[in-house]
Amino acid sequence: MGEAFEPRYGEAWTPSQCLGMLALPGAWLTLARVDERVAGFALARAVLDESELLLLATCPTLRRRGIGGVLLRSVIADARIRGATMMHLEVRANNDAVALYQGEGFRKIGERRDYYRGNDGKLFDAHTFSKMLD
């Protein structure tokens, strides 16, 4: 699923980073499949009554088919089951996924200027979002 991350932004998590997160208490991975093929995944964690969407990725050839929305709603449902009443996430400001998050009720609560560095050295802002899960 490394192809789910645009190389110019340098955002791809390595498999070892994902595995390292999964080893932490409260972390989980949700997979989406289309015709027995992994079409996307979401990595999240919950601590006490708060949760965080760490990573959501879909296969580029399967985008705009609702897979990201299904993954996001599944992660939200899982977070509720785990007792979370709030979910947080962070995303690059010009990422197309911002519209998905806002459409699912996430509200921008903060900004980190020049937080992400692309492979060409260009800097991008990070936006933080939250959603009440009640």
Results as ranks from 00 to 15, higher is better:
residue 50 E to G: 11
residue 18 C to K: 06
residue 113 R to H: 05
residue 1 M to H: 13
residue 101 Y to H: 03
residue 15 P to E: 06
residue 71 L to M: 09
residue 69 G to D: 00
residue 87 M to E: 10
residue 53 L to G: 01
residue 36 E to M: 07
residue 29 L to M: 12
residue 13 W to T: 08
residue 2 G to D: 14
residue 66 G to Y: 05
residue 28 W to F: 15
residue 90 E to T: 08
residue 2 G to C: 08
residue 75 V to F: 04
residue 52 E to R: 11
residue 9 Y to A: 07
residue 49 D to E: 07
residue 50 E to V: 15
residue 80 R to Y: 06
residue 46 A to E: 14
residue 14 T to F: 01
residue 72 L to A: 02
residue 28 W to P: 09
residue 134 D to L: 01
residue 96 D to H: 10
residue 80 R to V: 12
residue 133 L to V: 00
residue 115 Y to V: 07
residue 65 R to V: 07
residue 115 Y to I: 03
residue 55 L to K: 07
residue 3 E to V: 15
residue 79 A to N: 09
residue 66 G to R: 05
residue 115 Y to W: 10
residue 25 P to G: 13
residue 13 W to L: 13
residue 131 K to C: 10
residue 39 A to M: 13
residue 1 M to D: 01
residue 23 A to L: 08
residue 72 L to C: 09
residue 100 L to G: 14
residue 18 C to M: 09
residue 116 Y to P: 04
residue 87 M to Y: 05
residue 116 Y to G: 03
residue 55 L to W: 00
residue 14 T to L: 11
residue 104 E to M: 02
residue 96 D to R: 14
residue 54 L to T: 09
residue 73 R to L: 13
residue 96 D to L: 11
residue 109 I to W: 00
residue 110 G to W: 03
residue 80 R to N: 04
residue 63 R to N: 05
residue 110 G to M: 02
residue 127 H to D: 04
residue 93 A to E: 07
residue 77 A to E: 15
residue 107 R to E: 14
residue 95 N to R: 02
residue 122 K to C: 10
residue 79 A to S: 14
residue 45 R to E: 05
residue 131 K to M: 10
residue 6 E to R: 13
residue 74 S to I: 00
residue 115 Y to Q: 01
residue 97 A to L: 00
residue 2 G to V: 12
residue 50 E to F: 10
residue 107 R to V: 14
residue 91 V to W: 01
residue 86 M to Q: 09
residue 91 V to P: 06
residue 94 N to G: 03
residue 40 G to A: 12
residue 43 L to H: 03
residue 79 A to G: 11
residue 131 K to S: 08
residue 120 D to T: 01
residue 111 E to L: 15
residue 36 E to N: 14
residue 4 A to Y: 04
residue 7 P to H: 02
residue 6 E to H: 12
residue 103 G to F: 15
residue 78 D to K: 15
residue 107 R to Q: 12
residue 78 D to T: 14
residue 27 A to W: 11
residue 97 A to E: 04
residue 130 S to W: 15
residue 126 A to L: 10
residue 8 R to Q: 11
residue 131 K to N: 02
residue 103 G to K: 15
residue 66 G to C: 06
residue 113 R to V: 13
residue 114 D to F: 08
residue 32 A to S: 15
residue 109 I to P: 00
residue 19 L to W: 02
residue 108 K to E: 14
residue 39 A to W: 09
residue 27 A to M: 11
residue 116 Y to W: 02
residue 105 G to C: 01
residue 22 L to W: 05
residue 59 C to Q: 15
residue 91 V to Y: 00
residue 69 G to C: 06
residue 58 T to H: 05
residue 45 R to H: 11
residue 2 G to R: 12
residue 7 P to D: 08
residue 98 V to F: 03
residue 123 L to M: 05
residue 34 V to K: 14
residue 105 G to M: 00
residue 126 A to Q: 04
residue 121 G to Y: 03
residue 34 V to L: 13
residue 33 R to W: 10
residue 27 A to I: 07
residue 33 R to I: 04
residue 75 V to E: 10
residue 96 D to A: 14
residue 61 T to N: 06
residue 84 A to C: 13
residue 90 E to K: 10
residue 26 G to Y: 09
residue 87 M to N: 07
residue 127 H to W: 14
residue 70 V to T: 13
residue 15 P to K: 01
residue 104 E to L: 02
residue 44 A to M: 11
residue 50 E to S: 11
residue 65 R to P: 03
residue 118 G to W: 05
residue 50 E to A: 13
residue 49 D to G: 01
residue 66 G to D: 04
residue 91 V to L: 06
residue 41 F to S: 03
